[in-house]
Each structure stands twice: as structure tokens, then as C-alpha cells.
Design a protein around this nucleic acid. Structure first.
Length: 481
DNA sequence: TGGCACTTAGC
DNA sequence: CTAAGTGCC
């Protein structure tokens, strides 16, 4: 029986995780449809993520997104209650103190969470609580698509073909206009107590370019469909323009449903170019593929997907060289520009992610895990599925990966995708005075570079040809052994 | 979702 | 001489 203001139903916990939105939220909707009074809770339990507890940039975003969620709930007459973990004990205690008859949540697919949540569901049900989970994050949950042999996909193209052949979208559901509130049980702790926001405010520059939360996500979607979608198939490779959707952090935190993004694209069929719409949908497909792989190959955040690479001769890490890469001081402009963009905005253009990753794993020949870890800590969109897929793909160790010998030349990449050098100049202002061909490769005229860009490293960490050569030698060695 | 050395066609 | 194609890493 649906709840009304006059006769509120029994309480049910709605456990928010990476589904920080009120529209298209199946767990919240299940509570309402079941006639319950939803008690929205968030439980801070970073240790339960195992080796992959969220990084600092991700936490900074989550702080703001939780704040936005609480505002949205309050506008509708409810509010968010925040607690410290462990998750199971906290839920059990809340069930006891609120009298909740049910617990609803939306699924996560990271290995540590899949295990934890399965156990939580089992224990709660064993205690007679109605515990149920839903899909809020994916177009296709990892177990819904299989190859002809009933096995998980390892190659993107057949995976995506299968997805398109089995296409079925969740209907979009507007956020409830009003929510009943319950006064039962503890109120939890203030948002600040979770200490997600950086103490010293190093993230302040992030928020010039991002608005965490459901409202910000919808604005980003609108900005995309009104703007960068036109020409997306080509322009998304251009880091010097706003050529991408910039939806990744919103999708990661569940501030928007992927099917709402698809629905927005579908509405543009006929008025926007099919190539652009298909390319945009295909990028969502890579996100889906990442979750598919992570679920079926749960070791891949830490281990090579292709075990052949376990014998690969990665270079020993020099802490100063690794730090030069991290802080954008390698002496290769497009690499350094990307790493500085990451550091100051918590995000990096995808084309540049590939370039800096190729440089780390090929020219420096460092194990991809060093790059994956740095991205994990610095990206606001850090996502275990996408991060793992991306790094193993570039490193050549992954499923359907670029072959190891596919080594990006950072100078060629910059000339091709940042032809006016504007992206480089934006993130490396000390290079803005360098004339164009030189701005891509300052070492080619050391005297001029010294004069016009005295603050930039004149001596690249590694010679590009030597780096490429060393990588190919190590790869050859792997193949004959 | 490459790069490069080398070839060949065409001027 | 350059552009386009090819095979390999």
C-alpha cells in the first residue's frame, strides 16, 4: 500500500553508495513503491574497499556530491543520515533502532564490494529483514551478456555488438516530488565529520570546472548534447577543445543514470549526426565493458590480464623519475601538460591519458600499476573498472589491448591532436612563448628553448627514440623466452 | 583509439 | 620529390 502523508508506512533503509541521485534510483523507488518510509543513509567505510580505498580527489568529489544529495532530499522533506562503518554492523544497528523492515540498495561491481554486499544481504535476510539490491549504474549488468559459448567477452567489438542486439533501456523515472521522513533512530554524524574534504583546500581549483551532484550532472548532460556532441566523433580526440562529454565523474558517483544519457542521445536521432550519436553511445559501451571485465576477472586491478606479461622486464622505478611524471616535469610537453591538467582539475582528457600512459609504460617502461595508482589518487572520476581497463589496454597487458609495440610518439600525438599547441600552452604557461614546432619538442633547439622557456626541463627524462627502442627490446625478449 | 622503415606510383 | 601503401615491431 503506498504511503501517504497521513499514514506513513513502516521505515525502510535506503543505503546510498555510488548512486547519489534521486531520479532513476531503483532502490529509492522500491522503498516508495513498497509503501515504506525511506530512511536515506550513507555509511563511510573506506577500509571495506580493500586495496582500492578511494583516493583524495575522489573523496573531495564525494563530499560535495553527498552534500548535494542531502540538499535534494531536504527540498523534498527528507534528509540524509551519515554514519561510520563497518557497513553490516551499522545497517543491523539501524534496523534495530529505526524498526526498519527492509533495506534497499543499488549494486556495485568492484570485487571487494560484491563479496561484502552478498554477505550483508545474506545476513540481513537471515534475520528476517527484506534486503534487496538493484541495478542503477549499468546498461547491462556484467552477467547479462555472454558469448555463444556462454563465456564472458574479452574483446570489445563483439561485446558491444551483443549489447546492441540485446538493447533494452530502463525507463527514466523523475525524482519523487515529496518524500516522507521518519524521526526514528539515530541521526548520525555531520558531513564534515567524514573528513572527505581536503583539510587544506587544495581542491578549490577543481570546482571552477565541476559541479558535483545530480543537478550538476544534468547540467553537464545538457551542455554536452547542446555543445560537444556536434562533431563528437572527431572532436572528442581534441584536448584543446571542449570535445568530450565530461560526464565521467557524474557517472562514476551515480549522479546520473547511463540510460538517461542514452535517452538524451536517442532524442537527437535525426537532428544530430548518427556518427556522433553512435560514438557517444560507444564510449558508454567502453564503460560497460570495463565493468564486465572487472566482474569476470576480479584480479585484474592488480595483476596482468595476460599472464605472459608476468615475465616482462619492467624497468626498476626511479622515485625521482616517477615523481617527474606525476608532477609534469618529464620534459615532454604533451605529457607534462596532461599531468598538470590532472593535478589542477582532477581530470585529464582521454586522448592525453593514453599518451601519458603510453609514455610511462613504454618510454619509461614502468609497470602500469604505478600509473594506475597515481590516477586512482588524483582523478575525480577514478573508477576501478575504467581505470583498470584503460591502463591494461595501453600497457598491452589487457583484454583486447593495444599490442605492446603500439607506442605513441608524444610529439606526433601533440601535433595531430593539439595542432596549435594551445592545450600545451594552457597547462604549461612557461612554454607559451615557444614558437609552434618547438613547443611540441623543446629539445630540438636547446638554445631557443633555454632563452624563451628557462623554467621548463630542457633535458627530457629519456630520449624518445631510446625509450621506444628499450620498450621494443623488452617486448622482443618476452616473445622469444 | 600507432609508428616507422621501406616500397611504389605518380609527378 | 611526395603521397600513399605495406609489413613489421
Amino acid at each position: 500500500m503506498p504511503a501517504t502523508a497521513a499514514s506513513p508506512g513502516p521505515p525502510a533503509l535506503v543505503w546510498f553508495r555510488n548512486d547519489l541521485r534521486l531520479a532513476d534510483n531503483p532502490a529509492l523507488q522500491a522503498a516508495l513503491d513498497g509503501g515504506y518510509t525511506p530512511i536515506p543513509v550513507y555509511i563511510h567505510a573506506p577500509d571495506e574497499a580493500g586495496d582500492w580505498r578511494p583516493g583524495a580527489a575522489s573523496d573531495a568529489w564525494r563530499h560535495r556530491s553527498l552534500d548535494a544529495l542531502d540538499s535534494g532530499l531536504r527540498q523534498r522533506g527528507s534528509h540524509l543520515r551519515r554514519f561510520f562503518g563497518p557497513s553490516l554492523a551499522t545497517l543491523q544497528s539501524l534496523v534495530a533502532t529505526t524498526g526498519a523492515e527492509a533495506v534497499f540498495w543499488n549494486r556495485r561491481y568492484e570485487p571487494a564490494f560484491e563479496q561484502r554486499d552478498a554477505r550483508i544481504k545474506q545476513v540481513l535476510r537471515g534475520q528476517g529483514v527484506h534486503a534487496e539490491s538493484f541495478n542503477s549504474a549499468l546498461l547491462f549488468e556484467p552477467w547479462t551478456l555472454k558469448t555463444q559459448q556462454g563465456k564472458p567477452f574479452r574483446v570489445f567489438t563483439p561485446f558491444w555488438r551483443s549489447a546492441l542486439a540485446n538493447w533494452r533501456l530502463e525507463p527514466c523515472m523523475e525524482a519523487p516530488a515529496r518524500l516522507p521522513d521518519s524521526g526514528e533512530g539515530p541521526e548520525g554524524v555531520p558531513l564534515q565529520a567524514l573528513r572527505l574534504a581536503p583539510a587544506r583546500g587544495w581542491d578549490s581549483t577543481f570546482w571552477e570546472s565541476w559541479t558535483p551532484g545530480e543537478e550538476g550532472a544534468l547540467q553537464a548532460l545538457e551542455a554536452f548534447t547542446d555543445g560537444a556532441l556536434r562533431g563528437y566523433a572527431q572532436q572528442r580526440d581534441r584536448p584543446d577543445r571542449i570535445g568530450t562529454s565530461r560526464l565521467s565523474p557524474h557517472l562514476h558517483f551515480g549522479e546520473i543514470a547511463p540510460w538517461r544519457v542514452v535517452a538524451a542521445l536517442d532524442r537527437l536521432r535525426g537532428s544530430a549526426a548518427d556518427a556522433d550519436l553512435d560514438a557517444a553511445r560507444r564510449e558508454l559501451g567502453w564503460r560497460e565493458f570495463g565493468y564486465h571485465l572487472l566482474h569476470h576477472f576480479p584480479q585484474t586491478p592488480d595483476l596482468n590480464f595476460d599472464p605472459k606479461f608476468n615475465a616482462f622486464d619492467w624497468a626498476q622505478v626511479s622515485p625521482s623519475h616517477l615523481q617527474a611524471w606525476q608532477h609534469g616535469r618529464t620534459g615532454v610537453p604533451i605529457v607534462d601538460a596532461g599531468m598538470r591538467e590532472l593535478w589542477s582539475t582532477g581530470w585529464m582528457h582521454n586522448r592525453v591519458r593514453m599518451v601519458v600512459a603510453s609514455y610511462l609504460t613504454k618510454h619509461l617502461r614502468y609497470h602500469w600499476r604505478h600509473g594506475a595508482r597515481w590516477f586512482w589518487d588524483t582523478l575525480v572520476d577514478a573508477d576501478l573498472a575504467s581505470n583498470t581497463l584503460g591502463w591494461q589496454w595501453v600497457a598491452g597487458t589487457g583484454a583486447d589491448a593495444a599490442p605492446y609495440f603500439r607506442i605513441f610518439n608524444p610529439v606526433t600525438q601533440a601535433q595531430k591532436f593539439d595542432p596549435e599547441g594551445r592545450y600545451i600552452a594552457r597547462w604549461l604557461p612557461e612554454l607559451a612563448a615557444l614558437p609552434l614546432p618547438l613547443r611540441f619538442a623543446p629539445w630540438q633547439d636547446p638554445a631557443t628553448s633555454q632563452r624563451l622557456a628557462p623554467d621548463y626541463p630542457l633535458q627530457p627524462l629519456v630520449d624518445l627514440y631510446a625509450g621506444r627502442d628499450g620498450a621494443l627490446k623488452a617486448y622482443r625478449q618476452l616473445r622469444v623466452s
